[in-house]
Write a protein that binds this DNA or RNA. Structure first.
Length: 571
RNA sequence: GGGCCUGUAGCUCAAUUGGUUAGAGCAGAGCGCUCAUAACGCUUUGGUUGGGGGUUCGAGUCCCUCCGGGCCUACCA
């Protein structure tokens, strides 16, 4: 039994996430966690909300709420939606937790002790009207290069020229529109990533099995231009983790907080402590997952994230861990994803374009979304959601291939043998062939899951479902029954057992439907079918079952059209 | 501008990393079955692998070039 630590990139707090966010980290992480648990491995699956930073403050202000209240409320909302999608986190924590405060300050203290923090005085734009320093992209003005009047302080969207906020002509606050801006001197802490470049580079080079997407982004940052740069890890904000050196105050840093990208990954660790604290368990509980000196040396740590998060997970966070000089667990495998587009464009939180988690669940059960999203996961390139494709895939795969299999088998049995597993008859060559085929299919499915090849795993699972229909078609118990009811009984007995096997195999993708299948088959036996022949006898003759409701109702053309138009506009 | 990824059947994707005749699913066509959610099964149509050039006994795969799409570029997170 292996021990597997799984984290999903933590979703930002300012609003409800769309399906692109979901499929880029949380959903595949959940698939992997469920699979590994099903294989009897010990799993700790962690996620949290990422609550600090300027956008959170602005969103709270817009909602007319104190930022702490806003975050608490949005955390509840996101928790409900995670539950709705059946994301099986062992703990869904908060980056604003007391645990993360202490741990983030602890890491900063260690890094300072080890000479990896420098204090840098710099000039930043301050908005008097807004009463805050403004990040570059929150300053708008006219581009000195092309004259576009809504250029941002970091880059002009029109001519793509890189800008400095001070380059802008007539700069104004993107928040209030105020032009009452001034340049102020402010002091910040920088993490001296340069001095860790060699170690990080060596570490990345050792990861030969990582997705190209992951390593190429890391190498780019390591080697581009002058190489890896030091990074500011503090900000002039009210909401965040106060800058401290461990438990001590940090002279000159009063009123400042850590940069959200410094404290967010540390929350992966703090979240484990939130998990054990919530149960009143001792620190040893979470430390055996994170401290290699306290039992975590045999843990395999896998991270899931969208490609935009890769630099922080391959460089910044490892720099924090390595730089601490303490025996924290480093990530073993990073699974990164491209983006999911929506009907010819991008999903957009700010523009409300696409399908959001709450809307998705209000239309259809989680399994529909889970299946489509995972079987179309953007692993090798960006993928695209269209309503037509969604309807066709879900109807065919879930309703026709899997759902109808369950339906035809249970209903046939009920009409000929009653609602119990029939006795009599023996298996022959046809059943041997099916068992061999299923065993091979399961082996391929397992291999894809171990390698976290999500689409491939979905394809293999589907092929296993298809094998059941092919068997029924050629065995044709409805014909055999007329002359040889015992033989038909043996066929149906196998088919009923196949439903249980399908439930177990499919549960990581479609947990609710798997649950319905198991309860219809009146069994709690979720043993993995490592021995297919034995697995297909788990439900013995005489075992009672019930014919379930339709597992997956098909999506009608009308519904699809309604949603298509309904979601075309803005949220 | 620079870097990386990507372009394969009408659609969504494969192709053991240079090795026979480029494969699946969906959609389309035909046949079969009648247990089942008008479901299932079998057969089948469909490709100058974005264009052009090159290397090689051999190129979807490597090189050059052109065209298209995407991402990143360090103060959004």
């Amino acid at each position: 039994m292996a021990r597997i630590l799984i984290t999903s990139a933590i979703p930002y707090i300012n609003g409800i996430k769309h399906l692109g966010n979901l499929v880029g980290s949380q959903l595949p992480a959940d698939l992997y966690a469920r699979y590994m648990r099903a294989r009897d491995h010990e799993v700790l699956f962690l996620c949290a909300t990422d609550e600090h930073g300027t956008p959170a403050e602005l969103a709270a202000a817009k909602a007319g709420m104190p930022v702490a209240d806003y975050c608490a409320e949005m955390h509840e909302v996101q928790t409900r939606l995670s539950d709705g999608f059946r994301l099986s986190f062992d703990k869904f924590g908060r980056s604003s937790s007391p645990q993360n405060h202490l741990l983030t300050q602890h890491f900063a203290g260690k890094l300072a002790e080890n000479g990896l923090i420098s204090e840098v005085s710099e000039k930043q734009m301050y908005s008097n009207a807004d009463g805050r320093f403004l990040p570059d992209r929150y300053i708008e003005g006219t581009c000195p290069n092309c004259g576009y009047d809504r250029a941002r302080g970091d880059q002009c969207e029109n001519c793509t020229k890189q800008l400095d906020p001070t380059d802008l002509i007539e700069p104004r606050s993107a928040i209030s529109g105020s032009t009452d801006l001034e340049v102020r001197e402010t002091k910040h802490l920088y993490l001296k990533q340069r001095s860790l470049r060699g170690q990080l580079s060596e570490w990345i080079d050792s990861k030969t099995d990582w997705p190209v997407l992951t390593t190429s982004i890391a190498r780019k940052w390591l080697n581009d231009g002058d190489g890896l740069q030091d990074r500011g890890i503090t900000r002039d904000l009210d909401w965040g983790i106060p800058v401290k050196k461990g438990a001590e105050d940090w002279p000159g840093m009063e009123g400042k907080v850590f940069y959200v990208w410094f404290d967010a990954p540390i929350e992966y660790i703090a979240c484990a402590k939130e998990w054990s604290d919530a149960r009143g368990a001792p620190d040893a509980e979470w430390e055996r997952w994170w401290r290699t000196d306290k039992g975590a040396d045999d843990v395999r740590y896998v991270q899931f994230m969208g490609k935009d998060n890769v630099p922080f997970h391959t460089l910044s966070f490892p720099a924090t861990i390595i730089g601490s000089g303490e025996p924290w667990k480093l990530v073993d495998y990073i699974k990164s994803f491209n983006y999911l587009n929506y009907d010819g464009g991008q999903f957009s939180t700010s523009q409300g374009r696409g399908v959001f988690m709450d809307q998705a669940l209000s239309i259809l059960p989680a399994d529909y979304w889970r299946w489509w999203l995972l079987s179309h996961a953007p692993e090798n390139s960006d993928a695209e959601f269209t309503w037509e494709n969604f309807q066709a895939s879900v109807n065919k795969d879930l309703a026709d291939v899997l759902g109808n299999f369950v339906s035809r088998v249970t209903k046939f049995c009920r009409s000929k043998f009653g609602e119990e597993v029939p006795s009599g008859g023996d298996w022959g060559a046809e059943e041997d062939a099916l068992i061999a085929r299923l065993s091979e299919g399961v082996a391929r499915y397992e291999a894809a899951m171990e390698a976290i090849e999500v689409r491939k795993a979905a394809g293999e699972l589907r092929a296993i479902w298809v094998a059941g229909n092919e068997y029924l078609q050629s065995a044709a118990p409805w014909s055999v029954f007329k002359d040889d009811p015992d033989r038909a009984a043996a066929q149906v007995r196998l088919a009923l057992n196949l439903i249980r096997v399908y439930a177990v195999l499919s549960a990581p993708f479609i947990p609710d439907a798997a649950g319905s299948m198991l309860s219809a088959m009146n069994t709690l036996d979720t043993d993995w079918p490592s021995d297919m022949r034995a697995a297909l006898t788990a439900l013995p003759p005489g075992h009672a079952f019930t014919v379930p409701e339709v597992l997956f109702k098909k999506i009608a053309d009308e519904e699809r059209e309604d949603w298509q138009t309904g979601f075309a506009g803005q949220r």
